[in-house]
Structures are given as C-alpha cells and as structure tokens.
Amino acid sequence: MAKPLMVTDPSAGAAPAKAQAARMKFYVDVKRCIECGGCEVACKNENNVPMGIARIRVVTVNEGQTGETNVPIPCMHCTNAPCISVCPVDALFTRADGIVHVNKETCIGCGYCGYACPFGVPQYPSGLAFGQRGVMDKCTFCAGGPEKPLSDRERLMYGSNRVAEGKLPLCASVCATKALVAGDAVEVEKVVRQRVATRGYGESNWGWSTAYPTG
C-alpha cells in the first residue's frame, strides 16, 4: 500500500522530487479538521505573520448545529487563480511549481483580489493611518516570495521559505489529523482518492482506523 501521508509528513523531511516542476497543492479534508488551531499558530510562528493577519484560518460553519464543519482555509494556489485575473497591477503571479505569489513591491492594496478569491484568503494590515489598507499578504505555501531565496529580505517581507529548504508548508506538517494535506498535486490526489475510496464503503465504515488503512 502506498504511504500517502508522506506528502505532509515532516519526518519525511523533503518535498517531492522534481519540486520545481511539481504543481503544489493543498487539500482540505473538512471531515478531519478538529479546529485545534495548530495550523494557525504554526503559520504565525513560522512566518512572523503580523497582528491582524491570518494566512490560514479555521472557519466553523453551522456552529452548534447539526452538520457543524470546520474548514481550514489557506491559499489554495488555484491553477486558474481569479485573484491573478483581477489584479490591476499584475502583482499576483503563478510560479513554475504552481504556487501563487504576491509581489508586495507591486501591490497597490486595492482589495480587489479579496473579492475575487473564493476563499477570502487575501489579508491586509489593519490599524494604518486614515484606515489605509496597506498591501496584500497571503499564504505563500511556505515558499517565501519574489526575492532572493532564503535571504533576510525575503524572510522579512514574506516569511519563511521551507520549499527552498526541501520542506513542505508547516501548517500541513503539524496538522494532527492530516486534515490539511500539502505537496505535489499527484501525490495529494493519491491521498484524496484513497480517502474517497475508503469512505465510499459507507458512513458506517467511517472511523480513524478506516481513514488510515495503512495504520
């Protein structure tokens, strides 16, 4: 049996081979998220995210009702990202490995991407003079930004660059229930297919043991 969890397993140490050619993706399994907030804390800590900005959030839908669902929301690094298509100054772009980045030098802070993004991912600093929005900040897939990789400037402006170090995003790496899966789209898809197949046997078969058939 394949070991799909390796795509986000920090003990595995390395990003998938051919990372530069990969199409990096997150998968959010809303059936597994327990709203522990570990991803949010890890992201804040790893990337020195400023106050008022959350590069990943766990949103609870139908709280206290039947069907309550917790949804971790990082940037999904869409293949056809609507944020890119609406940005008037081309501050957003897709890297060769599929990661959607923002260039903070170019961004004018119009907030248009915030409306285009189906996940509400773009964030803006608050508390600036005259209510100014500042420039956009978002999940970088822990891949830094359009600066020299692993430089001080990159770390200051965009946070850590774990991908350049051969690692995967910290939020997915620390996720206790593997609700967040990150990595090469091919590998992530294997995880998704396996979970679908596992759950396809029926509701009664649902449980931690069947969710992790390989143990």
Binding site: R23, K25, F26, Y27, V28, D29, V30, K31, V59, V61, G67, T69, V71, I73, M76, H77, C78, T79, G98, Y115, P118, F119, G120, A185, V188, E189, V192, R195, V196, R199, G200, E203, W206
Partner: peptide, 21 residues
C-alpha cells in the same frame, strides 16, 4: 451584500471531496 461569499471547500465532501485548482 458582496461580502457574503461562498465558502468553496466541499462541505458535502464525505464521499465527494473535490480537489481544488
């Protein structure tokens, strides 16, 4: 009204968890 937006993750996703992107 535009601030109320869809939240795209597959809420019905036990059997059909879509892969985004």
């Amino acid at each position: 009204g535009g601030e109320v937006k869809p939240i795209m993750p597959p809420l019905s996703g036990l059997l059909n968890p879509a892969l985004f992107g």
